[in-house]
Amino acid sequence: MNSRSVVIERPGEHRLESGPPPEPGPGEVRLRVAAAGICMSDREVYDGHRDAGYVRYPVVPGHEWSGTVDAVGVGVDAGLVGRGAVAEGFRNCGICRRCRSGDTSLCAAGYDETGFTRPGAFADHVVVPARLLHPLADDADLRAAALLEPAAVVAAAVRAGRAEAGERVAVVGAGTLGLLAVQLLAAGSPGELAVVDPRAERGARALEFGASEAFAPREAAELAGRYDLVVETAGAPSTAASSCLLARRGGRVVLTGMFTPGATGIDPVHLSLSQLTVRSVFGAPSSAWSFAVRAFGAGLIDPGPLITHEFPLEGFADAVALVGGGDPKTGKVLLRP
């Protein structure tokens, strides 16, 4: 059988390649891809805007995905064949001090991630280390499970923020990360759960996902100092600074958006006088993946309603053009090999 893959040769140039399916090596598994999400990071790879240290051309993108194990390498349990699963993207070494401490997303061996430096899931098949696999329940919705990668990032943010029942919480940004954060935070019984987004349609969607209030940024500016925890997910030029202003004195802020050079800095005077705790999240450690998969299996998060468009591999050009296009009706875009 042939296996197809979308290859970005260099920024702005891609092709659909066909050849023998990749073979799993020792300790690896091959999965038949069920669905793969396209996010802004993929758009940055295609446009050539991703930092050179975090992409290696030519590359098969695809870091948000789900699939079914169809082959295993030497040393891997053959009982995995036929199991639906997702897999962590970071190819952590597992032996450095950071990995041993559980901070696998801070692996000292250097950055190495499926879909950016290794072939990803914009393909019929993807090969990953078996140790990074997270098997799913037999009846799991693999279409929705393709979004467990952003759900794991959100899980890392929520865990870093130490959300407690009854607290006032704000989520800045109502894209994929923001809406998944709303679902996960709502499951923890916050006293208030506000969402800040300039797009009224996204704010309304956040209310459907469990938010108690939705505000435009101009309205939110009047709520300075109100929230115990602020989870920033937008990565817009001003949202790191504005998120800190929303937090109460002694509050916590977790930044998960991917910022670009030139973003507004956080005021160090405000930071010190308010005694804020500020954390950032890039990717997700293994513990957050386990948390997200468990929450998905328990029904605490359901990424399915975020999906608005689906394309075959041949439709990659049209699909990637939708991502970041600014249409508020465009949610998560999937490739379905």
Rank of each mutant, 00 (worst) to 15 (best):
R15L: 15
E23F: 09
R30D: 05
A35W: 00
A35V: 10
I38V: 01
I38T: 00
M40P: 04
G53Y: 03
Y54M: 14
Y57C: 08
T68R: 11
D70A: 07
G73R: 05
L80G: 09
A85G: 08
V86Q: 08
A87T: 03
F90R: 10
R91F: 15
C93Y: 05
C99D: 04
S101D: 13
L106I: 03
T114R: 08
F116K: 06
H125I: 11
R131Y: 03
R131D: 06
L136A: 06
D139Q: 09
D141G: 03
R143F: 10
A145H: 08
L148Q: 07
E149R: 05
A157L: 10
A157M: 10
E164G: 12
G166K: 03
E167Y: 05
V169M: 02
G173P: 04
G175R: 00
V182G: 00
P190Y: 01
L193N: 00
P198W: 05
A211E: 00
A211P: 02
S212E: 02
V231Y: 08
T233S: 10
P237A: 11
P237M: 09
T239Y: 01
A240C: 09
A241C: 11
C244R: 05
A247I: 10
T256W: 06
D267S: 12
D267N: 13
S287R: 14
A295Q: 07
A298I: 00
G299I: 01
G304E: 15
T308W: 04
L313T: 04
A319K: 05
G326A: 07
T330A: 11
